[in-house]
């Protein structure tokens, strides 16, 4: 990652600013940077989204492929996460350099989605114990400017919202052999319910206060951060402490409260944007990377 090195004086400057609830770019402690979200940017995927949060740039592509359900969950499809920290984001990621961070992010995503309510996996089952849809959620990191986890989770939610899985039917003939029939109409497809899909909110402890959506500079003087994954209703589906420093229990509770409050607001504005984009339909001018 494009790590930044800060001098002691710069760190003190940032910490004092945070103490006064005024950050380098004029935000207050609970403000996000401007988030740009665009869905349906890669046309050969089932669903895709691009998220730009400050200098952080994320592309998420979802492909639905047919496979067999897991033995212990025969009625459900599954979701696989993969995060590619490409060399585009930082030269250190060249070759296998990005694998460590990629696995860490993917595992966090697995943990956040590892509950009954996040996604209705039963809808992905085609025939019990035989066929199901496997959603490959592939995240591509194009540029990092701090707060990767939040941007990625927003991208995943937007891409899941955008995902369209073709409808299939199981035909059975007299001899009992089964055949899968794909619907002729390309618009005949399943949409996923993303109401309970969580978003990750990262709270970084700087000095005695915590901030959301830290920039690279702020991350450099963060003692420790707490990732909380919050649904639109304010439910917590996962939590993780990252960073070198330690946190006391009291501040963790404070951070969770902030996380819930901010998370709800993020969900509301994200849903608004997604609905607006959806309502434009085909008339929407696709911007992608050209804008």
């Amino acid at each position: 990652m494009a790590w930044v090195r800060l001098s002691e004086a710069e760190k003190v400057y940032i910490a004092h600013g945070v103490q006064e609830d005024l950050r380098q770019d004029g935000r207050s402690c609970e403000d996000y940077r401007c988030i740009e979200v665009e869905t349906d940017v890669v046309s050969n995927t089932s669903g895709s989204a691009r998220v730009k949060l400050g200098h952080t740039d994320i592309l998420v592509g979802i492909k639905a492929e047919m496979g067999t359900p897991k033995l212990e969950r025969p009625h459900e499809g599954c979701v696989e996460f993969f995060v590619d920290c490409s060399a585009n984001a930082a030269p250190e990621f060249e070759g296998r350099g990005g694998e460590e961070l990629g696995t860490e992010i993917a595992n966090t995503l697995y943990r956040m989605f590892n509950n009954e309510s996040s996604l209705d996996l039963k809808a992905l089952c085609i025939s019990q114990a035989e066929h199901c849809w496997i959603l490959y959620v592939d995240v591509l990191l194009l540029e990092c400017g701090g707060n990767l986890f939040d941007a990625i989770s927003i991208g995943v939610k937007a891409a899941l919202f955008n995902t369209r899985i073709p409808k299939v039917r199981i035909l059975e003939d007299e001899e009992g052999s089964k055949e899968i029939e794909l619907s002729d109409d390309p618009y005949d497809c399943i949409r996923l319910n993303v109401e309970n899909v969580p978003c990750i909110i990262t709270l970084s402890k700087i000095g005695h206060r915590h901030v959301v959506d830290a920039t690279l500079q702020e991350e450099a003087c963060t003692l420790a951060s707490l990732l909380v994954s919050v649904t639109s209703k304010g439910l917590l589906t996962g939590m993780k402490k990252v960073g070198k420093g330690s946190l006391d229990p009291e501040s963790i509770f404070e951070m969770i409260e902030t996380g819930k409050r901010v998370g709800k607001a993020v969900h509301v504005s994200l849903q608004e944007i997604l609905n607006k984009e959806e309502s434009l339909g085909k008339q929407r001018q696709k911007v992608g990377f050209l804008g």
Partner: peptide, 21 residues
């Protein structure tokens, strides 16, 4: 001159398992 070519896992018709290498 140091180059790296990689393809996003979702870039092709069928999903690729590795972006590069």
């Amino acid at each position: 001159v140091n180059c790296q070519y990689s393809m996003a896992t979702f870039s092709t018709g069928e999903r690729k398992r590795r972006p590069h290498g």
